[in-house]
């Protein structure tokens, strides 16, 4: 029983990856978790990875792109704090099904779920083989996140990645964590902030003009 309870360690963030069949979802996650690229069998139903990020536990759910599992995917989307919508840069149809098939599934996810659009197989891009332009993907990414606080998004949630070379993979996950994790624990931030301010007052800055100095002179003059 110990193991099952250990497995159930409460994850601080649930990240789910969605996207058409064979766009490279499992490869993307394995590249991130294991740091290497290898061929994968078709995912059955879903797969699950646990990642430590600082003091946080992040559960990364890999879903099957096969259409027969569509019913399960919305179930796996439940409570997701971030979703990766993956498409193949070389296939426009995979981009279109993001909007048609996968976006509605995210109704089950958290209301403030961050939706990151990710183009995969960047390394396979030949001149002329690109079927999805950066501009339209970027626009799509902006649109679907319009309900979020735009101030917190320091860039468009759109990445073009290659699991083979590892390009942009870690950056993309870091972007998600930066956005999602510090936010979900406001306390942590505030405690950190107070710590910082108290630290700044306890250090003596010789170059800074002392605040109490003018008061004292006043007193002396009196």
């Amino acid at each position: 029983m110990t193991a099952s309870s250990a497995d159930k360690r409460k994850a601080d963030l649930k990240v789910i990856i969605l996207g058409d069949f064979a766009v490279g979802k499992t490869s993307l996650i394995c590249r991130y978790i294991e740091g290497k690229f290898r061929a994968h069998e078709t995912t059955i139903g879903a797969a699950f990875f646990l990642k430590q990020w600082g003091s946080y536990n992040v559960a990364v759910w890999d879903t099957a792109g096969d259409e027969k599992y569509t019913g399960l995917q919305s179930f796996y989307c439940r409570n997701a704090g971030a979703a990766i919508l993956a498409f193949d840069l070389n296939h426009e149809s995979s981009f279109e099904s993001l909007w048609a098939r996968f976006l509605p599934l995210l109704d089950n996810a958290n209301e403030d779920c961050l939706k990151v659009v990710v183009g995969t197989k960047l390394d396979m891009l030949q001149p002329g083989s690109r079927e999805v332009t950066q501009e339209e993907a970027r626009r799509f990414a902006r649109e679907i996140n319009s309900n979020l606080d735009q101030k917190k998004l320091d860039r468009d949630p759109y990445f073009e990645t290659s699991s083979k070379t590892g390009m942009n993979v870690t950056e993309m996950f870091e972007f998600i964590y930066q956005y999602c994790l510090p936010l979900s624990e406001d306390k942590k931030i505030s405690s950190l902030a107070t710590k910082r301010t108290s630290a700044s007052t306890s250090t003596v800055d010789l170059n800074k003009p002392a605040v109490s100095a003018p008061q004292r002179t006043k007193c002396c003059f009196r």
Binding site: D7, K8, K14, G45, K68, L72, F75
Partner: peptide
């Protein structure tokens, strides 16, 4: 935690919160 038989002969784990914490 419950185990359900899902489509395509998948064994699905579901917690009472309605989410899954183990792969099928």
């Amino acid at each position: 935690e419950f185990l359900l038989s899902g489509p395509n002969a998948l064994g699905m784990f579901v917690t009472s919160e309605g989410i899954s914490q183990r792969p099928p």
